[in-house]
Measured scan of single mutants.
Amino acid sequence: ESFERTINIAKGNSSLGMTVSANKDGLGMIVRSIIHGGAISRDGRIAIGDCILSINEESTISVTNAQARAMLRRHSLIGPDIKITYVP
Rank of each mutant, 00 (worst) to 15 (best):
I30Q: 09
A66L: 08
M18A: 04
G37V: 02
S59Y: 04
S59W: 02
A39K: 02
I82Y: 06
D43L: 01
H75L: 12
S76Q: 10
N23Q: 12
S76E: 15
C51V: 13
K83L: 07
L53F: 05
I35M: 13
T60N: 04
T19N: 09
T6E: 06
P80D: 13
I34C: 02
S54L: 06
L72G: 02
V20K: 03
A70Y: 08
S15H: 13
V20C: 14
S33V: 01
I30G: 03
T64Q: 01
E1Q: 10
P80S: 15
R73T: 14
M71S: 06
A70E: 15
F3P: 09
A66Q: 12
I78Q: 14
S21M: 11
G26N: 07
S62Y: 11
R69I: 09
G79R: 08
G37K: 06
I9D: 00
A10T: 14
R32L: 07
L27C: 13
I35G: 11
I34F: 03
E58P: 00
T6N: 06
H75D: 07
R69P: 07
I9R: 00
I55M: 08
M29Q: 06
V31D: 01
S14Q: 15
N65M: 07
S14R: 14
D43R: 01
R69S: 13
G44W: 01
T6S: 08
N56G: 11
E57M: 07
I84T: 03
D25R: 13
A10G: 07
I7Y: 00
A47C: 12
T19S: 10
V87S: 08
I84Q: 00
I9P: 03
V31T: 01
D81P: 06
D81Y: 11
I30A: 05
R32S: 13
S33M: 04
T64A: 05
E1F: 15
A68K: 02
D43P: 01
D50A: 01
N65R: 07
L72E: 05
C51H: 10
N65H: 07
D50G: 02
Q67F: 05
I84C: 04
I30H: 07
I82A: 09
I55R: 01
I46N: 00
S41K: 09
S2M: 13
S62T: 11
G26M: 04
G49I: 04
I46S: 03
R69Q: 14
A66H: 11
R42F: 04
M29C: 12
H75S: 12
I78S: 15
L27G: 15
D25E: 13
A68V: 07
I7K: 02
S59E: 07
I7P: 02
S2P: 08
R74G: 06
N65G: 10
Q67K: 08
S15M: 11
I48C: 10
G37M: 00
H36K: 14
S2Q: 09
G38V: 02
G79H: 09
G49S: 01
V31M: 02
I35L: 10
E57A: 09
D50W: 00
G49T: 02
R42L: 11
L16I: 11
S62W: 09
E4Q: 14
I40Y: 03
N23D: 15
M29N: 05
G17N: 01
G49W: 02
T64L: 03
G49H: 04
V31C: 04
I34W: 04
E57C: 08
G26Y: 02
A39P: 08
S21R: 10
S62H: 14
N13C: 12
C51M: 12
M71A: 09
D50N: 02
G79I: 05
S54D: 06
I48T: 11
S59V: 05
G38P: 01
I48W: 00
S2K: 11
A22V: 11
V20P: 00
S33R: 12
S33H: 11
H36E: 13
D81T: 12
R42G: 05
R73W: 09
T85P: 00
S15N: 14
V63P: 05
A47F: 06
R5H: 09
E57W: 06
R32I: 08
I55L: 12
V87Y: 08
I40H: 04
E4W: 08
A10D: 11
S21T: 13
N23P: 11
S41Q: 14
E4H: 11
T85H: 06
I34K: 04
L77I: 11
N65S: 11
T19W: 06
A10I: 12
H36I: 09
I9M: 03
S54V: 04
N13R: 10
K11R: 13
S2V: 10
R73I: 11
G28N: 02
N65I: 09
K24H: 11
R42N: 10
R74Y: 10
M71L: 12
I46E: 00
R32D: 14
R45K: 03
S59P: 10
N56Y: 02
H75C: 13
L77D: 14
T6C: 08
A68F: 11
D43A: 00
I61F: 12
D81W: 10
I84F: 11
G28H: 03
G44C: 03
A47W: 04
T85D: 04
S2G: 11
P80Q: 12
K24W: 05
R32W: 00
E1P: 07
M29Y: 03
F3M: 15
I7E: 02
A70V: 08
H75W: 10
K24P: 15
T6Y: 00
R42A: 11
A68R: 02
I78P: 15
L77E: 15
D50L: 00
N13D: 13
R32M: 10
E57D: 15
H75F: 12
Q67G: 11
I78D: 14
T85F: 04
S41M: 11
I82N: 03
R73P: 04
P88N: 05
P80M: 10
F3K: 10
D81C: 09
I55C: 04
A22K: 13
V87A: 08
E58I: 06
H75Y: 13
L72K: 04
K24C: 08
V87H: 08
C51R: 15
M71E: 05
M18W: 06
G26S: 07
M29A: 08
K11I: 12
S14D: 13
A10S: 13
R69F: 09
T19I: 12
Q67H: 09
F3S: 12
T6F: 04
E4C: 11
Q67D: 10
A39M: 05
T60R: 01
R5W: 03
K83C: 08
N8C: 13
I9S: 01
T19A: 08
G49P: 02
P80L: 07
N23M: 06
A70I: 10
S41G: 11
D43I: 01
V63I: 13
R5E: 07
N13W: 07
V31G: 01
A10K: 15
A68P: 02
V31H: 04
Q67N: 07
G26F: 00
N8R: 12
A22T: 11
G44R: 06
G26E: 06
R32A: 12
P80V: 10
R32F: 03
K83F: 05
I78T: 15
N13G: 11
E57R: 07
I9N: 00
E58Q: 09
N13A: 10
S54W: 06
L16Q: 02
K24A: 12
G38D: 07
H75P: 06
T64W: 01
G12M: 07
C51I: 13
I9Y: 00
D25A: 12
S62C: 13
D43W: 03
N8E: 13
I48F: 01
A39C: 10
F3G: 10
I34L: 07
L72W: 04
S59T: 07
E4A: 10
S62I: 06
